[in-house]
Design a protein around this nucleic acid. Structure first.
Lengths: 340, 340
DNA sequence: CTGAAAGCGCTTACAG
DNA sequence: CTGAAAGCGCTTACAG
């Protein structure tokens, strides 16, 4: 049943049917109602592709993750994707779940949709400036919002949502200091120079030794965390900040295996505040990322770009920059220093 | 740049350009190459909505979760959605990430897409027969694959992927028995009658008391697990099977808080085998769900339905039923019974 | 308020 | 192998 058959059946023109469904143009309330009733009865629904073809708009966005090396679609990113999908849905957009094996090579589906009008825009979650830049360049014509760590400057991006990791990290280090820790280690994640820099700054701000701060590489998995903590323990740390909660959980596990109690013998703090981090044993103190705020901000920014593009196609617009702040979440894995 | 401008520019008809891109119809290799070069140069890409309008096909599917009460889009479902998106991508489909607040009311976007031709099909992950039936009825015209627990019969569903929870649960109980456990408790999740029944059967199969087996309700969160384990501990269990890993983690946490060591004093086993369950402390023994197999099977089945529908629209086809088996994954949270 | 008709950007029988 | 033309199912100026 297409609009032609249906309009004949309803005894009106296709134009009238179209107006009834789109809400555009004047139409008598009575006719509209009659059309709706009939549509319901005969199961007529406008074809969405014909509408999109006309509108040159799809109401679909994609969330894409661009990483500097291995692709990670881990819990953190899943939770963020969820929030974005929710915020996008509230704005009338459908969200594509994009997963890809190669970080430097968007999937064929994404490519196709993005260049062929199948996507109104993309929210790019990127962990390195280079990959974000490459991505933005590749999809020059499409509205792209980049969600990024704080200290990036990305002139090419039309919109930028920056996560100010430093605020939460500063709070975390202050808490550690307050708990009597003076020798604090750091476990690296992927492409986390920003976090590490913020950590060093926080040490200085708290009159702690930043030059001699013990460091170990993750970068990614629970096992990486287990391995890394072993390294750090030989360097006599009493507390460790980890670049991600996953690494922190690995670190807790590794320390426990070595017979240490957390937090009595060793304090561990993560970054990300995953949903389950509140429920590990002990519960993991972590730097909380405001996912909902990030999602809302990114979707609003994208919507703005889409609107602007509609209003004045091709017109250069001012870069939108938003910054969201992180906050330390205190939990039992951070305790008093052993002999403080 | 549309096909008209571009074909003029290339000095051929729109038909030829179309054939170059679609791969349908004969076309001289040389012309095709020339067209590709030119398209690359001028940035011409066929409009995807026009193509879909013609094809009456979108190459988009949705994964939808239908739950008997509160909506849950937890780690388990996220991991499954990932696998489905991956399998779908390999088949050329894009996957929509559907999240909804009301379980009985698909989102407006899903509704619209599903009925307006925006979706080729839906993979429905359902935890109750009723909700699955209602869903299938609602989207009568659309290919729907239902991913469900084992013992469902769902005549309305065109395709069914059944997760045979009983096989893994049987193995789990056998292992507990082998470890000397004779009094095994169960923590309920949501809509998990199937799992519970399998548990009772497994007890009987192992000559254990199924009538007196202590039981507590979850149903959902870590906290639920913490609460439930407290109930069970007063009933003198030495091992507990939990309906989900999340509940199991809560149970471990609750038991630990009460001063019990796992597995020395109490053994805990989950169901789902989440990615992080291998890394909790102690690592959580669990019934593994073959997510990749489920995803592949579901996508293949859906693809099959789509193909059938294309070949013979409206023709009733045989119901596709696949069963995938679960398996017990042994880890440290299951140990010898205290005084066995 | 409603309709006839052109147009959105492709594809595909049908001819050649 | 290639082209002219009708068609996919809507929308929207333009008239009335």
């Amino acid at each position: 049943m297409d609009i032609k058959k249906f309009s004949a059946l309803a005894g009106v023109s296709t134009a009238t049917v179209s107006r009834a469904f789109s809400g555009n143009g004047r139409i008598k309330e009575a006719t509209r109602e009659r059309i709706f009733k009939l549509a319901e009865k005969h199961g007529y629904v406008p074809n969405i592709h014909a509408q999109r073809l006309n509108a040159r708009r799809s109401e679909i966005i994609a969330v894409y993750y661009s990483f500097s090396s291995a692709p990670i679609f881990d819990y953190y990113n899943m939770e963020l994707a969820q929030e974005i999908a929710k915020a996008a849905g509230a704005r009338g957009y459908t969200t594509n779940l994009e997963l890809t094996q190669r970080t430097d090579e968007p999937s064929a589906g994404l490519q196709r949709a993005a260049t062929g009008g199948g996507l109104d825009g993309i929210i790019l979650v990127a962990d390195s400036r280079e990959s974000a830049q490459a991505f933005v360049k590749r999809f020059k014509r499409l509205p792209v919002v980049v969600v990024a760590n704080h200290d990036w400057v990305l002139p090419e991006a039309a919109a930028l949502v920056r996560i100010h990791q430093a605020s939460g990290i500063r709070e975390a280090v202050a808490e550690m200091k307050a708990a009597g820790h003076t020798r604090i280690g750091f476990i690296h994640g992927m492409a986390d120079e920003g976090k590490h820099r913020a950590f060093l700054e926080a040490l200085r701000a708290n009159q702690l030794d930043d030059v001699g701060a013990p460091t170990a590489r993750g970068p990614l998995s629970f096992e990486d965390g287990e391995r890394a903590i072993a390294e750090l323990l030989s360097q006599n740390v009493s507390a460790v900040l980890c670049s991600t909660d996953i690494l922190a959980l690995g670190a807790m596990s590794g320390a426990t295996k070595r017979g240490l109690r957390i937090p009595e013998d060793l304090s561990i703090v993560g970054i990300d505040n995953l949903a389950f981090s509140a429920f590990t044993s002990p519960p993991l103190a972590s730097v909380g990322i405001p996912r909902t705020e990030i999602a809302l901000t990114a979707v609003e920014a994208l919507h703005q770009l889409v609107q602007d593009e509609t209003a004045a196609p091709g017109a250069p617009s001012r870069q939108l920059i938003h910054t969201v702040h992180t906050r330390f979440i205190s939990r039992r894995s951070l305790g008093a220093a052993p002999n403080g």
